[in-house]
């Protein structure tokens, strides 16, 4: 009951940083929603996707905040579900062969294995079972099926999806297993909240800086809308948030925190353009239209698949005794 006790305390005591943070997110949503009503009227034809985009944001934030308040297991199950939806989206787009249908089923088993390891708090299982042993199993099972033409490419394609959608997303759920006494807020909830907020703020800040001052394209072949001005503006914004709020939500401080402030926004950018490169390769604009205004699940979590492992390993190396 450790993970819920914190919230009971929060309800009776003074406002804590997490409640203030969640309130701030909802205020940002309200401002965005008002903008979605006003802006399309001021500039006809522009801002048309802001309405559906904000609607999807309400759904996403609502579900995540509800899971955070429900506690550890509901949150782990929610992220297992997100991994499933992301992997399904990826496998529905990526080139596969008719013979590989059983292999695709085997790839889905990575979700059960990885989230089981998280749920029973076996970090070594999480690190090895999927990235090492399922990798070998997939390659072996595919060799067993016996079609050698396109074998290496398809093993690689399926493994890429498993690591990105299951292992990397799994790090977010794994944060819930950080012992409360190692954290400033006495609960891993703040740790998860902070990762999700800085990852999304980084995306939004890059977008806003780029829209306002963007001139020089940074990756013209992969993602033509990205500019140096947007990227640097976003990096600086995210650095400042990490630097000033990091000590409130995480046990990091000093040089490690500064280093995270530099690396995490770059990682988020990296996740974004990596997914863009994949979409270009496959000839699609969005990974699906599961989230109106955003595109697919993968379009929304692309940055997170890069920021989650970095954030976790920074904490593990510099601050946590357990990992």
């Amino acid at each position: 009951m450790e993970d819920t006790g914190y919230f009971e305390a929060a309800l009776v005591g003074a406002p804590n940083p997490l409640s203030i943070g969640i309130a701030a997110v909802f205020i940002a949503l309200i401002i965005g929603t008002l903008a979605a009503f006003i802006l399309p009227r001021l500039q006809k034809g522009k801002w048309t996707d802001l309405g559906p985009r904000m609607y999807s944001w309400w759904v996403i934030v609502g579900i995540i905040v509800a899971a955070l308040y429900l506690g550890k297991m509901p949150f782990i199950i929610l992220f297992g579900l997100i991994s499933f939806l992301a992997l399904k989206e990826y496998l529905s787009l990526a080139p596969t062969r008719k013979e590989d249908r059983p292999i695709i089923l085997l790839a889905y088993s990575a979700i059960i294995v990885a989230y089981w390891a998280i749920a029973i708090d076996e970090y070594p299982f999480f690190l090895t079972l999927v990235p090492v042993y399922l990798f070998l199993g997939l390659a072996l099972a595919m060799a067993w099926i016996g079609r050698t033409e396109g074998y290496l490419a398809t093993v690689g394609i399926i493994y890429w999806g498993v690591v990105v959608c299951v292992t990397n997303v799994g790090y977010v759920a794994l944060l819930m297993q950080v012992p409360p006494m190692e954290l400033p807020l006495q609960s891993p909830t703040g740790l998860v909240f902070f990762l999700l907020v800085i990852t999304e703020v980084n995306d939004v800040a890059q977008y806003v800086w780029g829209k306002s001052f963007g001139k020089n394209k940074i990756t013209p072949n992969v993602s033509p809308n990205k500019t140096w001005e947007g990227a640097i503006g976003g990096f600086v914004t995210t650095f400042l948030i990490i630097w000033f709020l990091g000590p409130v939500f995480t046990p990091l401080k000093g040089l490690p925190l500064a280093l995270l402030g530099v690396l995490l926004p770059i990682a988020g950018f990296g996740g974004d353009i990596t997914m863009s490169a994949i979409k270009r390769d496959l000839g699609v604009k969005d990974t699906s239209n599961a989230l109106p205004g955003h595109g697919g699940i993968l379009d929304r979590i692309d940055s997170l698949t890069f920021t989650a492992p970095i954030y976790f390993h920074f904490l593990a190396y510099f601050a946590l005794d357990k990992f």
């Binding site: 499933f84 399904k88 496998l91 529905s92 249908r101 089923l105």
Partner: peptide, 17 residues
């Protein structure tokens, strides 16, 4: 789009969009 890949004639179902 994609139904013949998720559940083709005479084969097992695999979740795909």
């Amino acid at each position: 789009h994609g139904a013949g890949r998720a559940l083709p004639k005479g084969e097992m179902f695999v979740p795909m969009n």
